[in-house]
């Protein structure tokens, strides 16, 4: 950069006419023209190559946002009333996955422990997967992309299945086992709500890992891809269930039967 700074203090240099510049060029052959950067084959100047992309995407996005904001108003219901609990009451949509989990197990496990473990696990990924293989390639390889597809389908199907099974047997009863232990055997609530629920979740993830290992013989990176995809898809599947399929009393229902006031 020092070289650049020196050059910038010589605006007179720009005034040198073309003929004289040629002569100068001959004089100091080799490194005559001020070349602030030596562009390698695979490099481009940030101005204009990157700045243009940023400017265009900013303008396009701002346009979309403005049009959306002109057309659709942000919701504003009646004044807050602590005496009148709406049914259903819902958290903001990005936490509705936690609220969905909450229906099936202990609140502390669903609302705090699971998300903390998930975020902690995600933050720790680079300390487990340190091989530089596959950097810069979406999904690492065609095998990686197959694992992503498999994991996404597996997660969607199994998660949806588990929610529906719970609905049939009794939501929050841990497939009836928790209810049986509590009602018939006098076990405390946490046995079902925490221990059984944690076992069911860990077991499902375990089965998933066995499937991925059996089918794909994955490397560490590929196994982490499978697990991350599981998290990524579960986040949205649960959020969609919470947002669009939970009506009065948090009963499963169709989206068109929901009150139209949740955003």
């Amino acid at each position: 950069m020092a070289e650049l700074a020196n050059n910038s203090t010589a605006p007179a240099a720009q005034a040198i006419d073309e003929a004289r510049r040629r002569k100068l060029l001959e004089l100091v052959r080799g490194r005559a023209l001020a070349r602030p950067t030596d562009l390698a084959e695979d490099e481009v100047m940030v101005w204009p190559s990157l700045v243009v992309v940023e400017a265009v995407s900013a303008v396009v996005f701002l346009g979309i946002l403005t049009i959306l904001s002109v057309l659709v108003n942000a919701p504003l219901l009646e004044r807050a009333n602590p005496q009148q609990t709406p049914n259903p009451s819902k958290a903001p949509w990005y936490f509705l996955n936690l609220q969905e989990l909450l229906l099936h197990m202990d609140a502390g496990l669903a609302g705090v422990i699971v998300p903390t473990l998930a975020l902690g696990g995600i933050a720790a990924i680079p300390y487990f997967d340190r091989s530089p293989l596959g950097v810069g390639i979406l999904g690492t390889s065609s095998k990686g992309r197959k694992i992503i597809a498999f994991s996404a389908v597996f997660t969607t199907v199994v998660l949806t299945g588990m929610i529906l099974i719970d609905e049939v047997i009794g939501t929050g009863t841990q497939w009836g086992i928790g209810r049986y232990l509590q009602e018939e055997q006098g076990a405390p609530e946490w046995v079902g709500g925490i221990v059984l629920s944690a076992l069911i979740m860990a077991g499902t993830i375990g089965v998933f890992v066995v499937f991925v290992k059996g089918i794909f013989r994955p490397t560490r990176r590929e196994l982490i891809i499978a697990l991350f995809t599981g998290f990524f898809v579960a986040y949205w599947v649960l959020a969609i269930f919470g947002t669009s399929f939970r009506g009065e009393g948090q009963e499963l229902t169709w989206p068109w039967n929901l009150p139209l006031e949740h955003h």
Partner: peptide, 14 residues
Amino acid sequence: DQLAYWAITVGSNI
């Protein structure tokens, strides 16, 4: 509003 109040109630209960 009601949306805000009860969403935060649910969220902070979590």
